[in-house]
Amino acid sequence: MRREEVLKSIIDAGVVAVVRGDSKEQGLKIVDAVSKGGIKIMELTMTVPNPVELIKEVAEKYNGTDVIVGAGTVLDTETARACILAGAQFIVSPSLDVETLKLCNKYKVLVMPGVMTVKDAITAFEYGVDVVKIFPANLYGPSVISSFKGPLPQGDFMPTGGVTVENLHEWINAGAVVVGTGGSLTKGAKTGDYDAVEKEARRFMDAYREAKGIK
């Protein structure tokens, strides 16, 4: 899938599942549960044991479906390249690393770096970033979107960190083009309750459609 197609799919989906886990096996179960619940964009983080193997397995399993697999918590170019070769269709970082942006541009892969300042956001846009990740979003609250859009009205932003079913509409109403959610979505996995993860994914998608006025 081309970079622009991945971007459109992510924005159309509206919600990105940030998948963390204590093992690769748990990561796989979370992906399955989240997918069944209706969230189709998977950010598989480098904090999961054997994360590149997890990306490869999920990418192969869901090849030809509407599930899009990406890599999260990518800190450097070596990791980004390994994830891309394993099948990641987008890269997410917690901070801004220019060399990682260059690497992703070289491979024509969508990259969403984390920023905390307008200066970092401007740098990201200068390197062709389409969507900037605001992280950790819970340190700011939804009003940060309008604060960023004051000097950067052309910017598209994805808040991640502290996004819940209950406050999702606040982020969408504030102007977020997509939201990322992890702990709130996958908390059931800690006790092995993957049905709860599936139900929470469904609640997230219902909340997103309601916030967007989609019937």
Rank of each mutant, 00 (worst) to 15 (best):
I134V: 15
G27F: 01
A189W: 05
L54G: 12
I91W: 01
T45V: 12
A88S: 07
S95H: 13
L185K: 05
V129H: 04
T191Y: 04
D22Y: 02
N167V: 06
D156S: 14
S9C: 11
F204V: 11
G70T: 01
E126V: 06
L75H: 04
N173Y: 02
D12F: 03
Q154W: 10
M1S: 14
W171F: 07
P153N: 14
A33M: 03
I55G: 13
G27M: 00
N173C: 03
D195P: 00
V111R: 02
T100E: 05
L110H: 01
V92W: 00
G37W: 00
S146I: 10
F157G: 07
G27D: 01
L101T: 11
E170S: 14
G183A: 03
T45P: 05
G14H: 00
S143N: 09
G155D: 03
Y208T: 10
I30V: 05
L85N: 02
A196Q: 13
V67G: 05
K215Y: 08
G37L: 09
Q26G: 07
Y107R: 13
V118W: 12
L7W: 00
W171I: 07
K187T: 07
R209Q: 12
N63Q: 13
Y194H: 12
T73F: 09
A86T: 02
K106A: 07
S23D: 03
V52Y: 10
D193M: 09
L101C: 11
G180K: 00
I55R: 06
H169I: 09
V115L: 06
L168K: 03
V118S: 06
T160S: 11
V109A: 00
E99Y: 13
K36H: 07
V15I: 13
I11R: 08
N63F: 09
M116C: 09
D12E: 15
G180W: 00
I122N: 02
V165D: 11
L54I: 13
F204Y: 15
V6F: 01
L75D: 08
L85D: 08
K187E: 15
F135N: 10
G128R: 08
H169R: 13
K199R: 14
D206C: 05
T181L: 02
G192M: 11
T186Q: 11
V18S: 01
P49Y: 12
G162C: 06
V144S: 10
S9L: 10
G141P: 13
S23T: 09
I91T: 01
V132R: 01
E57H: 04
K199G: 06
S95P: 01
R3D: 06
D32T: 04
E126D: 12
I41C: 09
V165Q: 07
K8P: 03
M116E: 15
G27E: 00
D120S: 10
V111Y: 04
D97G: 04
T164S: 14
I145W: 05
K190D: 08
R81H: 07
G38H: 02
G155A: 15
V178G: 02
E60Q: 15
G192F: 09
I214N: 02
L75Y: 11
G72R: 01
G150D: 07
K29G: 03
L139F: 15
C83T: 03
S9P: 00
R203L: 15
K40V: 04
G64S: 09
V109I: 15
T123D: 06
E60L: 12
R20A: 01
Y127T: 14
K149R: 15
T123N: 08
Y62Q: 05
A17T: 01
A189N: 07
V69P: 03
Y127A: 05
N173W: 02
C104R: 03
